[in-house]
């Protein structure tokens, strides 16, 4: 098992290496001439040459690539062309905001989607199954910006029970930063009022973001359970006199969710890209809003940093998914040997 995990991590490294290389290529492709971008429209040839020399742009390409690699590894992602501030500072503040939102959405999607899929399968072609199908189709078909605005209209404007936007009440202020996750930090600070306020702010964007994921998790769980129920070992377990609830909820489900868990890796990518729209609507101070700003102001340094960070998060999540799969099904780790 430990060997399997190590292997998965080692296998993720080339992907990360490729990602860093890709960001380098992008810095060379997006601005036709980075020196010209930096120097501005009115620069003289002498000024351009001076800038090339200062940023190492006159060095051979492979040398520049190595320098880029070294900088990235040391956590130096450069400074925003727009604000001049180090990009890393922004990321450190914004990444936890996005991760908190996506993790809560993922938790909701899994925590509701798996039981829904299970109940639907056990109630094959019955009312619960139809309801689950409705939710699945709806969850995938409803545009998230529309849902977000409807939720805002209903819960924030009409009923006025949840905040309209933002991550926390400005009057309360953020909890002292330890992890950057407000849920964790407010707990660490012993501030229940902040915890409740964070949850209230999370509710609408997390529900919006989780719905497509919930739909596909429910669908995969349902088909996984239906498939597993056909297996000989289920019949055998029934004959052996297993309890009904235990048979369905543990014995069958553990087989069924291997496929679902594999899906979560893919789903995470969808969640991150979905977060861009959701963050924009709810004014959530995460990577999504940052990326939108960066695009609008042609801040390619910031954009590359976001790409890199999202890529790393994605790689980490996929290693976690692989490990989770191996924990659920011991044959997964065996097959790779």
């Amino acid at each position: 098992m430990a060997r399997y995990i190590l292997r998965r991590i080692l296998l993720a490294l080339p992907a990360l290496f490729g990602l860093v290389l890709l960001t380098f290529v992008l810095t060379r492709v997006i601005p036709a001439d980075p020196a010209a971008t930096l120097a501005g429209d009115a620069a003289t040839p002498a000024q351009l040459a001076e800038i090339r020399a200062r940023y190492g742009l006159d060095r051979p390409l492979w040398e520049q690539a190595v320098t880029h690699m070294r900088q990235v590894l040391s956590g130096d992602l450069g400074s925003s062309i727009f604000s001049g501030r180090p990009v890393m500072e922004e990321i450190v503040f914004r990444l936890p905001a996005t991760l908190e939102l996506t993790f809560v959405a993922l938790l909701l999607a899994t925590g509701l989607g798996v039981p829904l899929g299970l109940l639907a399968a056990l109630n094959h072609n019955g009312p619960i199954d139809h309801l689950a199908r409705l939710i699945s189709v709806g969850g995938l078909a409803i545009a998230s910006f529309w849902l977000a605005i409807m939720l805002q209209l209903i819960f924030a404007m009409d009923l006025d029970v949840l905040p309209l936007r933002g991550r926390i009440d400005v009057a309360l202020g953020a909890p002292p930063t330890v992890t950057g996750f407000f849920l964790v930090d407010s707990l660490l600070a012993g501030r229940l009022d902040l915890l409740v306020d964070t949850l209230r702010h999370l509710a609408l964007p997390a529900v919006t973001l989780c719905l497509p994921g919930l739909a596909s998790i429910a669908r995969f769980t349902r088909s996984g359970v239906l498939e597993t129920l056909q297996k000989d070992f289920v019949l055998y377990a029934q004959a052996a006199g297993y309890g009904r609830v235990r048979l369905a909820a543990i014995y069958v489900l553990r087989n069924a969710v291997t496929v679902t868990v594999a899906q979560i890796g893919l789903l995470f990518g969808a969640l991150i890209s979905g977060a861009v729209a959701v963050e924009a609507i709810f004014d959530w101070p995460g990577l999504g809003t940052y990326a939108v700003q960066a695009i609008l102001s042609a801040d390619y340094k910031a954009l590359l940093a976001v790409t890199l960070v999202v890529g790393v998060v994605y790689a980490v999540v996929n290693v976690l998914v692989d490990v989770a799969q191996a924990l659920i099904d011991p044959r997964v780790a065996e097959q790779v040997k």
């Binding site: 070992f233 377990a237 297993y242 014995y251």
Partner: peptide
Amino acid sequence: LSLNPVFTAGAQILEA
């Protein structure tokens, strides 16, 4: 086919 591949032999029989 009669044993569940994701549970140990002991766990499956002990459950019964």
